[in-house]
Design a protein around this nucleic acid. Structure first.
Lengths: 253, 253
DNA sequence: CGTCTACTTGAAGTGAGTCAATAATGGTGG
DNA sequence: CCACCATTATTGACTCACTTCAAGTAGACG
């Protein structure tokens, strides 16, 4: 079918992401695109390399990683199907990007793409819309990283996964966690241990059900929403929002 | 002269922001623009309002503020001359934006601007470039908020001010801090008290010199760079990087 | 079935937040 | 021009959430 870009449009009233490209635009983009596959852990490109292509993910998950000078790394963003990957500046990629799962993506050469955008303002407007969408996501992420507590960050992250149709692969309401704990930690600005503790806490208090390391289910959506809204941050307060939670388990003692 | 947009270009090799618009583009944009002035504290627009115009700052400083559900606020970004203000989505502004200082800006009606962008792909590409620039800035901010310590955040913020030519208004090397401590705190994800403490610490250790509440000077650029690079975070380690710092001055009295 | 890696759990340390008091600024009117 | 007051900033003592360090445990894979 050809490349596909989802985002919330700039104009109009829909507040849910939708396909930005017309059938015709997708067909035209397909003419300059090739399909590439990556294995888990494989790099799509490295930070600082000359930028030659942009990827449009068809299936799978990728992460953009920025190395902090002190050796740690920050996962700047995760990318799913219908996303564009390949942020660059001054002709060079701004971050390294790596496949998290097996990945299939359209590969769009930048020079051909730029020529196409220069001749097709409507198409270009769709790219502008997608980048704006990413900007708002990055701003939201910045707020979360700077102001939210550990539990809230994890709650928000689980909600983020829930919003992605790709993560609902099973026939039931279970949600896939494609990345490992270290990736989550580096994304939300916590340690692996804190991520684990918060997940277990949400599990213990009956907000979510953890089903192995890479799957979970939202049991109490109401409590999760309250958590995300930031009404509270401690587990004591959390318990108060859970209707019939058996207090005789967890809680030390 | 007409609207003006600075950013690091996507293509090319310059890694410093430069004027993206041609003289002709600026003249054409001036035809749809009007000039508006705002007093300190005045709102340019409010979050959720229907988006009708985008501002291009000529002089002064603005801040985009997002209200956290618990009553606190986050300063998502500060805007200076040559910046575009008026992020929107689904036809509505994404955040409230407020003048920090007296502000002069071009006011560009969105519908007229969109028509212009649809007819001028080169101009649109410059807007795409500017939004990409903001995206990278937001990602960088997210990393800083999530992973850096308080001292490093403040060091980074002072460096950010230093990079803006607008803040170098005096004939010497003093830099203006246009916003108050609360704005800084809400921007870097700290409390007012922590901002104050970190500023005083940098002052005490001779890295900067504070000159009133809204002005400072970088005394030891080397130490500041090391701080930003994240080599260390404590003041003990900081002292070690300061060659010949007279410990007998500062310190009250 | 065993080994390796990824994850979980616990105990102790620490950096930033909170609360509270003091000090500096800046604007206003005497 | 100076005294006053409201606002904004600084400083200190204490608390707590998250990190760090150190075991343990469970999945994944050969």
């Amino acid at each position: 079918m050809g490349p596909s870009i989802y985002a919330i449009p700039l104009s109009g009233s829909s507040t849910m992401p939708r396909q930005l490209l017309t059938v015709d635009e997708r067909r035209k983009l397909a003419l300059i695109a090739s399909i590439r596959r990556f294995s888990p852990g494989e790099f799509l490109f490295h930070e600082g390399e000359p930028a030659t292509v942009i990827f449009n993910i068809i299936a799978g998950v990728a992460k953009s990683v920025s190395s902090l000078e002190d050796g740690r790394q920050a996962v700047v963003a995760f990318f799913f199907s219908h996303d564009l990957v390949g942020m660059f500046e001054a002709s060079r990629y701004a971050q390294s990007t790596q496949a998290v799962t097996a990945l299939t993506a359209y590969c769009l050469p930048i020079d051909a793409l730029e020529r196409m955008l220069r001749h097709d303002p409507n198409l270009q407007l769709h790219f502008l819309c997608k980048v704006s969408h990413e900007l708002r996501a990055a701003q939201h992420q910045a707020i979360a990283l700077g102001r939210y507590g550990a539990l809230q960050k994890i709650g928000l992250f689980l909600d983020f996964l829930d919003r992605h149709p790709d993560m609902h692969t099973d026939d039931d309401d279970r949600i896939t966690i494609p990345m490992d704990r270290a990736d989550i930690a580096d994304h939300v600005g916590l340690t692996i241990e804190s991520v684990s503790r918060m997940l277990q806490q949400l599990h213990r208090t009956g907000v979510i059900q953890l089903d192995g390391r890479h799957r979970f289910r939202i049991i109490n959506r109401c409590a999760l929403n309250r958590l995300i809204s930031g009404a509270m941050a401690t587990d004591a307060t959390l318990d108060a929002f859970i209707p019939e939670h058996n207090h005789s388990n967890g809680h030390t003692s």
